[in-house]
């Protein structure tokens, strides 16, 4: 029997779900290996479950916790997709600012409470995380194949530099640019450095990321301490490593 899959989105731009739809070459083959039980972005008839695998995008606001818990209950495996689901995303940055809405709305009366937004794992058990802004669609497919084969999916534990070096890119750090490649988990095939654009760390910290040595390196390249922390925190400020980062 084909495994039942659900693809859900919470607070985010929906770009990760869209990446799945961007799998144009194999999109029509996917239903031959999995039953898509719930995917609101792609189909109109959706069921709550039961689900073998659920892929959940977006960060979670308080009012969404119940909905998330329901998905968790209906799913054997729950996978956080994208950096919002894995780490709280860019929107998690508000947790480092006092009264963030004031910056935008000044003293205008707020209709809604400030969105308290967190990663999935703040509320439910997450079995696997596929980070990125957006996710890498090939990595998504590889993950799916592992599950279909009954194999334990292998999560990458090496940094972007590995992918970058194999492509023989001229090292951006050597050229004096500030690149987060050494502390960011691989999986995107070093897309940005391949195009001469420094890694901004959208995939979040690699296992055992050496944040303090990376910080020293960035300071040597002339970054000021405030900017340094901002760089680390841009996409995945909810990651423990970057919450604790010091300039």
């Amino acid at each position: 029997m084909k495994p039942g899959v659900g693809i859900f989105g919470f607070t985010g731009c929906a770009g990760c779900q869209l990446e799945i739809l961007n799998l144009e070459d194999i999109l029509l083959d996917l239903p031959s290996v999995v039953d898509i039980i719930n995917f609101r972005m792609a189909k109109s008839e959706n069921l709550d479950g039961p689900l073998d695998i659920s892929f959940v995008e977006g960060s979670i606001m308080k009012y969404q916790v119940g909905e998330l818990k329901k998905i968790r209950k209906n799913s054997k495996i729950l996978v956080a997709i994208g950096s919002c689901a894995c780490y709280g995303g860019v929107q998690y940055l508000q947790n480092f600012i006092e009264k963030p809405w004031k910056i935008v709305y000044n003293d205008k009366k707020m209709k809604y409470a400030s969105p308290d937004t967190k990663s999935l794992s703040s509320y439910v058990k997450v079995d696997y995380s596929l980070p990125g802004c957006p996710i890498d669609k090939e990595e998504f497919v590889d993950f799916l194949k592992s599950v279909l084969l009954g194999r334990k999916p292998k999560m990458k534990s090496y940094p972007i530099c590995v992918e970058c070096k194999l492509r023989e890119n001229d090292c951006l750090l050597e050229k004096g640019t500030i690149c987060l490649g050494p502390v960011t988990v691989a999986g995107c095939n070093s897309k940005c450095p391949n195009n001469n654009y420094a890694c901004e760390g959208c995939r979040g910290p690699v296992e055992e990321a050496n944040i303090s040595s990376q910080a020293e390196l960035m300071k040597e390249k002339g970054i000021d301490p405030v900017d340094l922390i901002r760089r680390f925190r841009m996409f995945t400020s909810g990651a423990k490593e970057f919450q604790e980062a010091k300039a």
Partner: peptide
Amino acid sequence: GDKCLGCGSCSFV
């Protein structure tokens, strides 16, 4: 060990 970023570049090149 404190300094190394663990990027593996030294061995790939």
